[in-house]
Amino acid sequence: MEEHMEAERRLRPEDVVELNPNYHFRWEEPQQAHVLLYPEGIVKLNQTAAAILEACTGAPSIADGTAELSRRYDKRNLGAEVLKFLEVAHAKGWIRVKS
Rank of each mutant, 00 (worst) to 15 (best):
A49G: 02
A50D: 08
I52L: 08
I52M: 13
A49N: 14
G79Q: 14
E29K: 11
L19V: 00
N77L: 08
C56P: 07
Q47S: 10
D15Y: 00
G41H: 10
D15A: 03
P60K: 11
H24G: 09
A55K: 01
G79V: 02
A55S: 12
F85M: 11
A7S: 04
P13R: 14
D64E: 12
E6Q: 09
E29A: 09
E54A: 12
V82Y: 09
V88G: 03
E29Q: 11
K44M: 13
P21H: 06
R76C: 03
L36F: 10
L86N: 09
R10W: 03
L37G: 03
I62W: 05
H24R: 14
T66P: 13
A51D: 12
Y23I: 10
N20L: 00
I52N: 01
I95Y: 03
P13D: 15
W94I: 04
R9P: 01
A67I: 04
P60R: 15
H24Y: 10
R26L: 12
K92L: 02
A67G: 11
R96W: 06
I52G: 00
M1N: 00
L36E: 05
Y23A: 09
H90K: 14
L83N: 07
T66C: 15
E3N: 02
N20Y: 00
R9D: 01
P60Y: 10
P39H: 09
E28M: 09
R71P: 00
L45K: 08
H90A: 03
N46M: 12
W94C: 00
A33W: 01
G79L: 10
D74S: 15
S70G: 12
S99V: 01
R9K: 09
Q32A: 04
V97L: 12
R72V: 00
